[in-house]
Write a protein that binds this DNA or RNA. Sequence first.
RNA 1: GCGCCUGUAGCUCAGGGGAUAGAGCAUCGGACUUCUAAUCCGAGUGUCGCAGGUUCGAUUCCUGCCAGGCGCGCCA
Length: 564
Amino acid sequence: MQRYRDEIARMLAEKLPLKKEQIAAELETPPEPQMGDLAFPCFKLAKILRKPPAAIASELAGALDGGDYFARIEAKGPYINFFCNRQKLALWTVEAVLKEKSRFGCQDEGRGETVVIDFSAPNIAKPFGVGHLRSTVIGNSLYRIYEAMGYRCVGINHLGDWGTQFGKLIVAYRMWGDEKKLAEEPVKHLYDLYVRFHREAEDKPDLEEAARAWFKKLEDGDGEARLLWQKFRELSLAEFKRIYSILGVEFDSYQGESYYNDMLAGTIRQVEDAGLAKESEGALVVDLEDEGMPPCLLRKQDGATLYATRDLCAAIYRYEKYKFSKMLYVVGADQALHFKQLFAVLEKMGFPWASQCVHVPFGLIRFKESKMSTRRGTLVFLEDVLQRAIELAEQTIREKNPDLKDKETVARQVGVGAVMFGDLSNDRIKDIDFEWEKVLDFSGETAPYIQYSHARICSILRKAEDWNGYDASLLTADEEQAVISLLARFPETVARAAETYKPSVVARYLLDLAAEFNKFYHRCPVLQAPEEGIRKARLALIAAVRQVLVNGLLLLGIEAPEEM
RNA sequence: GCGCCUGUAGCUCAGGGGAUAGAGCAUCGGACUUCUAAUCCGAGUGUCGCAGGUUCGAUUCCUGCCAGGCGCGCCA
């Protein structure tokens, strides 16, 4: 649809004292298809031209020649409505999709540039809960969306493999740990220890003290601390990788917090050299009062470092290594202040790239009773959620398509897709209330709905004979045009998702496309089309829909089975 | 107390400053000898939290208030 916008901008720019960009920015989509494909509102011109908007609209509409692009250009009240030439729109769109295939929707905006995406970052020694799913699937999707925009992407899993929680774990493990349990179910056992630590620490405050001391020992390279830490880390990471493979998520780097240990002293020195460090109550801080923020703590009284120190160090290291033009932190909205502080410190240190760092926040997952808490042990395990979704998908397949081969694979694709889509389909900033019945609902606005539409198309295409020599310009019926118009809008949808860092833009688009396809499917026979030309053209159309559904799902990290 | 975010149908949510505010779920009623009924068609509800402001025009932008969530030095 972009070429149509450009064409309108070109035509109007000749008649108006406006730049093409200004005109293009004003263009909108009419609320009803009968009102055309694109519209230009004339309200603002009224002031410039000192004439009523409706008069301007009808004058301009009469003076414009639609050429190949537009069949009609009509004024309706204060709007100029543009009706695309249906034959040409169908022809250009369907051909573009079928020619570009998996590249349709891709753009070259980011050629030669790198985007670093920091996402997932689970804490070692804590189970992978549904809370971590959000960062993982949103980050994974942004990775794919930015790749489609032509950027080179670097996905970094900034593992929470350092910090005071290891002091707690070491204390707990030394008191109540069990080597056999650790070997059998490492994350489960570590989780139990973590929960028990917090329960007991409620009336034994010296436990917290011991934990801080053990973390300090760890930072100072104590042998026993180091050995336990390494064991916890390895075992946990192995489990995380298993979950990532179920989700189909990959990273270019697993350099977590611990990776920066040896560089932290240097980072602190850099901050000191910049004249930003300040002693406060025994700790080292960067004062941010002039920014209206609380100070950023870089070193505790006992000399141990903090999260902010390691994030600061990591940011500098990553810029040196990747020379990114953008770095995205896909981290919960509850850490917004932390990132504002981090970016402010980078700015004060004089790094010009500080403004290229972006916190991409998302809302929390909540439960009816309270916020999910690792410490209290009220975590819902992601693996349980995935498992139940897969089981339900398998059961549904047995009911609806008992002859399907490789049911396990399809059940996994559908079940996992449903869970991922649930996290991606709404604006990421909103909190999500976790409800089993919603997660396990495969009807309506869900991934299975989109996947099902895709599978239906595949089914028709399998039964179709050769449709070479199709003529897409025959696709002028309302139902066909509604689908085509959406196909034409896919590239700009991807661009908008990238701009706003919102995979939900793509997810919503796919729901619209699937819905429009289903309407078409129920009203227009493909294989039994009234004549051969129409049949071939409709086959080409649904092949194009199939392609865009696959491309879009891929941007969300969701697979599209050919049968289900 | 201060800061950030959210507030749209019974529920969950879409809505790129514009033309009569839309989906899904749930409820009720239809459509499978016809390309997979995980689908489609039909039926109904809205002080777009409240009050001002900017604008030709505000659900959308600004301010204040109310409600909920989150955050505010040695956790991450």
